[in-house]
Write a protein that binds this DNA or RNA. Sequence first.
RNA 1: CGUCAUUUGCCUGAU
Length: 414
Amino acid sequence: VVTYNSLVNGLCKNGRVDEAWMLMIDKGFSPNVITYSTLISGLCKELRVDEAMKCLHEMIQLGLRPHTIIYNSLIDGLGKTKRLESAKQLLEKMVLSGCKPDIVSYNALIHGISREQGVSEALKLFDSVLKRGYEPEVPTYNILIDGLLKEDRVTEAFELFSGLMKGGLEPDAITYTVFIDGLCKAGRVDDALLMLKDMDEKGCAPDVVSHNAVINGLCKEKRVDEAEALVSSMEARGCSPNAISFNTLICGQCRVGKWKKAMATFKLMVKRGVTPTVVTYNILVDGLCKAKQVDEARELLSTSGFLADVVSCTSLINGFCKEGRITEAITLFDAMVDKGRVPDVVTYSALIDGLGKAGRLEDARLLLEAMEAKGCVPNVYTYNSLISGLCGLEKVDEGLELFVAMVEKGCVPD
RNA sequence: CGUCAUUUGCCUGAU
């Protein structure tokens, strides 16, 4: 069984969970708790939570007792697939079966709640966990600080940081990076740069993620030359730029119209042995589309070796719309659906906007209905596009009607 | 100490 477990583990590590699964089904040996632990965590990492839950039930039926870590993997997987209710139920179940949740169980749940229901809800759970006598760990604080910053609650984030220190804990590199990213996204890049230095002085070496967060902040402020300098200098500080570093810089350079620089960065990336990802190509495709070179963008994508995903398709559809090539936009939209790509709210919004600007408001309306019918919830961008189209054609009454409808549906106007 | 394992940070598309 031990040999066999190692094999299952090896397969899971290579992302070959299915083969591991087959191996297990292939009897001969009886799987033990370790076998299931390996399989379940492997499946959860790939977000194949239904299969992981099946494994859980199966092992219980075989008389094996799942331990905390197995439950924690599942709670995390359920949270990451937006199934918070199931995650909470599983936590209950774990208590009932005599397995006490630990702080990691709650960290996973707090994170899921923070993402799906907002950080305020997560903070409520945090409080009740404290009241029950659990000691929070650094990741607990990191999760909550990140949640606060993502909702622009910077002051409270710093207050929680004080709480971390008062609890006798030491912030780690992730704590600092969460702040660096949060400050950048609040438009405080210079403060983020200070914090990058500060963490170093406090004995917390910035890693590639810390650098990438700042590179992104600089790019968003259009300070691409500084971003480029940071990419060049980070190596000397012990962090090799990775695909995200280059992607971020290329994106920044595209956004300020420095197309040649962007291509040079792309070439440098390849030369440095960093493999471009689908995001790299999506950035270049979008850059070309914004430069009114949609055909070139398509060509680039088709030679990239990557299949068009929902993001690249949306860039192309938007590019066609902006060039007034609405028919081609629709054709591409239909083609992506045919190929089984699921358009999301951004795709729909781009096309609705294009239809509106082309004066085809009825089609735009129909598309809004179609997206809702498919369970894709329109957001404020979607409504703004359609309302603006209606008002542009002096159909202000219809625009107002739609405004009322969006509010009734719980979509907050901006 | 024969085998496994859980939680936190960075990049791309729409008004």
